[in-house]
Amino acid sequence: MLDIIHQYWLLFLIGSYPNGPLGGIAATVLLSVIGIGLAFPLSVLLALAQLSPYKALRYPATAIRYLLRSIPLVMLIFGAYFIVPIILGRPVAGFTTMAVTLVIFQSVYLAEIVRAGIESLPKGQAEAAAALGMGYWTRTRKIILPQALTNMLPSMVGQFVTTIKDTSLGYVIGVNELTYAANQVNSAVITQPFTVFLVLSLAYFVICFALTQAARLLEAHLERRNSRTVTHVTLNAQNAPAAGHSS
């Protein structure tokens, strides 16, 4: 196993760059960051729409939620791969298709987390803000979201881990990420598929496990901070956030 790592580590790390597109772990991380980064603002809007008292916003937002959570990501990727070039009338790079699909997919799951964060806040927070005369957007931007998002940070890190795992699906449309790189190595070595894929598994494990642990530390830190009250009264509702969950 060590020889394989020794020989192909560069391929695993950055793909065939500079002789080809950026690949390997670098591409995986890049895709994940773009995916979560762009999904985040969308997810906030989606969550707010799902919680809106206006049916015109709530119904479509809820429909999107049920629809995108029912279909497998790989099917969405294939669908996008075939359909998007037709819509745009020109060929689209696999990387771009993958990135866009990830953004759409992850924003629905992130919206669940954001929504849970908002709903876990005590009603009194919104009421106190309203009682002072703050309008909806002021309340949401300055009082609700800062608290909700901080509380859900561990879960969001968990969703980032999920995104990293989801990038492996880029393989099916030829995106040069880590799994694709591993398959290239496998084709080169041929005789040791078990070792190659074990290395692949360990690579993902190291990255994802480190992030998962970071999320857990973050959660413990938040829990300590929130429970550090002097009052005898249950200030309650800074609920401890749900554990970061990788799918």
Partner: peptide, 20 residues
């Protein structure tokens, strides 16, 4: 549990189908 959850399912499939 940690191993299973921190590796993508596609990679698990590859490891079993091609590797094992």
């Amino acid at each position: 549990v940690e191993y299973q959850r921190n590796v993508p399912p596609l990679v698990h499939i590859f490891l079993w189908y091609f590797g094992v």
